[in-house]
Amino acid sequence: MLQTAQRSSETIKTKAVPHERFLEAFRWMLLARTFEEKLVSLYRGGLITGGVYIGKGQEAVSVACGLFLQKGDIFAPLIRDQAGRSAFGEPLVDVARTYLGSRQGPMRGRDGNIHRGLPRQGQLAMISHLGAMVSVTVGALMAKRFKGEKNFIGLSCIGEGGMQTGSFHEGMNLAAVEQVPLVIVATNNHYAYSTPNEREFACAELVDRAKGYGFEGYNLDGTDLSACLDVIGSAVKRARAGRPPQLLVASTLRLSGHGEHDDASYVTDEIKREPFAQDCLKRADKLIVDLNLVDAKRLQGWRDDAAAQVDQAITTAQKEAAPDANEDWCAISTRALVDQAQ
């Protein structure tokens, strides 16, 4: 029954006509890019404590992850998924609050940057230990099945770096054993921090692992928004229709450092000339202009709107109070069982 993973040579090609949700997706990408550029400037200005981790170059894959999910679905984004998080419904102000440490944010200043989530709304809060969120997504889906819910799926994001963890492997195998409606979107951005692919794995194609796990597998061009929407949208449909779990492997280049503290000087000039090194946002933008999908004035209006949304989110969060060191610090919810350790 299981479909053999497709070889990279069979990567699904862009159709001449863009995906029906292309422009909607483009606007989320634009918002994510604008927002993250603002975060970078705040970081460089010393206004953000800790790190800033952006998804530049990965917005097309990410937005497609968030866009096809519905209320009741489970989304487990990772560090480069601002576009997907926004498309799934994460308020932009909550992102600003988390980066700026506002006590009104979902993490209330206790955790920062990309370590955020709204678990009750289906957006899981990642931990830094990669691969760990795959099985958590599986468990959330099992809970929904136990409770008799229908038509739900889960989508968990990973990079090619995280794919090499034991936790990822265990989670993938368990997902297939439990036959939960799951889509795994893996973005091969060609570097795990500074480590290139050849020191990360030795198989010809990461997507070949799909068959070994009992997943259906597909490659996709992560720089091509329309392809991302086609391939990820179709996988979401298949998962919803009860097909086995889906593994998608997108090819991109990380167009930033691992974090903004990292100048990424190890990224070679040679790799920057590869097709997967194209900027997905620029590609989408060019397609819009080439096909005259939107006139220049409207496009500029979208840019202005993104900038205004970003300004509003940042301004709001900046006005809010920082966490108070005298607040309730309990690590557990059962107050009667808090240990009195000093």
Partner: peptide, 12 residues
């Protein structure tokens, strides 16, 4: 690892 991860997701 995945057993406990699954339990966490189900509990949430």
């Amino acid at each position: 690892d995945a057993i406990v991860g699954t339990a966490i997701g189900a509990a949430l």
